[in-house]
Amino acid sequence: MLRNKEFRSFILLFGLLTIVFTIIGWKITEAAGILVLISAVVFGVVFFVFTQKRYESIARISDQIDLVLHNEERLFMEELQEGELSILQSEITKMTQRIREQNDALKREKAHLADSLADVAHQLRTPLTSANLTLSLLENTTDQNERKVLIRETEELLLRMDWLLTSLLKISRLDAGVVMFNNETIVLSTLLENTLRPLAIPMELRNIRIRIEIPEAVRIIGDSGWLAEALQNILKNCMESLDEGGQIDLVCSDNPLFTELAIHDSGPGFRQADLPHLFERFYRGEKDKATGYGIGLALCKMIVTQQNGTITAKNHPQGGALFTLRFPK
């Protein structure tokens, strides 16, 4: 307590004032001087004891803060009476709670980052291994037709790795919150036409039919480029599950609250065990036809939800998978 410069200055000033008023009182009467001196001593002792207790409370709070800074899991603070220290204690308790929550969040993010890096390494290792094997076969093959086939396979592997890295970059940008979405009015039928155009040839080769029921007047608010990316990922997922000659239905309904787009395929639908995990990153399930990396639907959900929309997936009552997207007015 005496290390406080202000407190030492106060003691010095209080002592000088006590001496001055004691002398003045003594000159008036001896009893007045003694009364002034006794009053000053009593007031000084009471003030010293009271201040000492306040400093002890502050010291205990300081010790608890030091424990927080050293990652102490449990924090105990005694209850103080109403006053400045009680307010200070309440604010420190709130601060420590926020620090603990942020620390827990950072630990979870660190663990998630480590898991994500391991998943990325695993996802890249498979096509890289295949590419290395294909190149080895290409080196030892003299037949021109077989070499063309191997070169085409290598190109496909490189395209898959490029798509994977591009998708991971998009996910990381969305995670970091650096993507600025455009709020533009989009004609939904035009958006679907632009989305389906790159998929037309693969669908035609597999004889997959598309049925669209979307009124021309329906419009939504969002970023057309990112929403086209999300819809393509859904359609690719539907195509993976379809046999040749399958069908995909795109049906729109509109009401004063939201616009709903339902995407239904004629495939086998989802396994019950997969339904809770469909939008989890790197989750691929146990489908025999699964050839993706488990990030398409995760990316799709991030795009839709960050534009205030919702997306769900379930099995259609008549069979097949059903994706439902809702865009608020």
Rank of each mutant, 00 (worst) to 15 (best):
M1T: 10
R3L: 10
N4W: 11
N4S: 15
I11Q: 08
L12A: 14
L12Q: 07
L13R: 13
G15E: 03
L16S: 12
T22I: 04
K27F: 14
K27Q: 13
T29Q: 10
I34T: 10
L35E: 09
V36E: 03
V36P: 00
S39L: 13
A40L: 06
V41F: 15
V42L: 15
V45G: 03
V45Q: 05
V49A: 11
F50I: 12
Q52K: 15
Q52D: 14
K53C: 07
K53E: 15
K53T: 10
Y55H: 13
E56N: 11
A59E: 15
R60V: 10
I65E: 08
D66G: 09
D66A: 14
L67P: 00
L67E: 12
E73L: 09
R74H: 10
L80H: 04
E84I: 11
L85W: 02
Q89L: 08
S90N: 13
T93W: 05
M95S: 10
R98I: 12
Q102P: 00
D104V: 12
D104T: 12
A105P: 00
L106S: 09
K107R: 14
K107S: 10
R108S: 08
E109C: 01
L113A: 15
L117T: 11
V120F: 14
A121T: 08
P127L: 06
T129L: 13
L133T: 14
L135D: 06
L137G: 01
L138S: 05
E139C: 02
T141G: 08
D143M: 06
R147P: 00
K148I: 10
K148V: 09
I151N: 10
E153H: 09
L157I: 09
L158A: 15
W163P: 00
L164T: 03
L169T: 13
K170E: 11
R173Q: 15
L174F: 05
A176E: 15
G177T: 04
V178L: 09
V178G: 04
N182W: 07
I186E: 01
L188N: 01
T190W: 04
E193Y: 07
N194W: 06
L196M: 08
L196H: 03
A200G: 00
R209N: 13
R209M: 10
R211W: 04
R211H: 14
E213W: 02
I220K: 01
I221Y: 05
G222R: 01
S224L: 04
S224H: 11
G225Q: 12
E229L: 12
A230P: 00
Q232F: 02
Q232H: 07
I234H: 01
M239C: 10
S241C: 05
E244Y: 02
E244M: 08
G245C: 07
N255M: 06
P256N: 08
L257R: 11
F258R: 13
T259C: 08
L261Q: 00
A262R: 15
H264V: 11
F270L: 15
L275S: 04
H277D: 09
F282S: 05
E286C: 01
K289V: 14
K289H: 15
T291W: 12
G292T: 02
G296Y: 01
L297Q: 04
L297G: 01
V304A: 07
N308F: 13
G309Y: 00
T310W: 02
I311S: 02
I311M: 06
P317R: 09
Q318R: 12
G319M: 08
L322R: 04
P328V: 07
